[in-house]
Design a protein around this nucleic acid. Structure first.
Lengths: 231, 231
DNA sequence: CTTCCCAAAATTTGATCATATTCTGATACA
DNA sequence: TGTATCAGAATATGATCAAATTTTGGGAAG
């Protein structure tokens, strides 16, 4: 019954391909979208990506399908695929969803976080501040995402966390545009309020702080989106 | 070299491939999962499905990838794929999500539905009642899903609707198990309350009725899930 | 003599690639 | 302006390789 994977678990020092190539391509493309390295509206071709990433067509194809299913890419009816352009009415829905999901996840995380978990969150927030004062857009986006993802992981609610994580893919491309216009100085950051509330074990205050953080962040996107038409 | 551009253009009476094959396979598998034709925990193999559906490996492969991305199927670490088994803690999250999404979508739909839209909803509900009294499980599942989907479409909120629709894939396989144990008689149906409220243009009452409908339906699943262990 | 367990062959299944076919969009020509 | 042709890209097939599970056979212990 109980099987002992004799050699597979020991994992030889030279691991040639523990994760398949379509998974690697997926993660890479996902990271690019998340960090705003692909412009909204940009066309995506299988053969182009295959050549660019030095991968075969089949793995690239599967990665693209997966990203389309997550709405990180859009299939344009004919056989074209592109990075989606965020519209103001879409943003309204995203704000509503993040208000619900991020606050619920933060509330659950508040009931489960150990002091060392909170220390880890604070460490991420410090790195985030450093990126802001450094004017490092890429670093800000990465640390901010890491902060929220850490909360998702603490909540022990895989379905909610998966949906919340999926939302980031939708506004990722636009985030880069926003930061490119505003710089990192004027970005809101309610993380310190949340951390303080966490230390007090005040779940309601944590949720409230996260809601403010999310709404303010999304409103910044909305403001830039409404002002500049980048088609 | 020698091309036959005419063959496709003449378009025989039976349209051979207006939609690509991977899309056909996807829709078919999705429908099977949604209608509970695949048992929770059942293994899914590419080659098995390819043989069963008379399709090539590549289209089946892409359809499975897509369904995995929607969490309609699960990738089990090694390279095996199976229909997910719903656990009670997952159900808690699904109930929370459906309460939020279905009520919000119903509220938005309430502000936009025309009288003929409401008539269409009522027609679906009548067909649903007929399926219940007939004891037709398959028909009940189909009409119930159609009812809620029609509301999603009316709400004009594509992101919310997409997420709500995606949730159905998660409890679809279990729904069939539930109906197999209970029959169709004891299933709750708050649709008539909702339709009456719709006619009064009372958005709050519509949302409240939908919330009761959703919660009662999901609680039925929870009760059966907690009672019978079907592994 | 039977039973259990471990190891290695055999089968099944997934991953990747090269190739052929079909479709879309655009350009050139009338 | 409208039509025909062409290049480019996506879809689909089958073959090939790699990995994992299952089966099978032999030996040791009871």
């Amino acid at each position: 019954m109980v099987r002992k994977p004799t050699a597979a678990a020991v994992a030889a020092p030279s691991d040639p391909a523990p994760v398949p190539e379509h998974e690697m391509v997926y993660r890479r493309l996902r990271a690019q979208i998340l960090h705003g390295e692909m412009a909204p509206g940009q066309a995506v071709t299988i053969q182009g990506l295959a050549a660019e990433l030095g991968a075969g067509m089949t793995p690239v194809r599967e990665a693209i399908r997966r990203l389309i299913a997550e709405s990180a890419l859009v299939f344009q009816g004919n056989r074209r695929v592109s990075v989606p352009v965020l519209r103001p009415d879409n943003l309204d829905e995203l704000i509503l969803l993040r208000r619900v999901l991020d606050t619920e996840l933060a509330r659950r995380a508040a009931g489960r976080a150990t002091p060392s978990d909170i220390d880890a969150l604070e460490a991420i927030d410090i790195a985030l501040d450093a990126a802001i004062t450094r004017g490092d857009v890429r670093g800000y986006l990465a640390e901010n995402h890491r902060f929220h993802t850490a909360i998702y992981d603490l909540a022990a609610a895989p379905i909610l966390a998966g949906l919340a994580e999926g939302l980031w893919l939708r506004f990722g491309p636009s985030l880069r545009v926003v930061c490119g216009r505003l710089g990192t100085q004027n970005l809101p950051d309610r993380h310190k309020e949340a951390i303080a509330a966490w230390r007090r074990c005040d779940a309601d205050a944590v949720a409230a702080a996260m809601e403010r953080d999310v709404v303010q962040g999304m409103e910044v996107i909305r403001a830039v989106l409404a002002k500049g038409r980048f088609d």
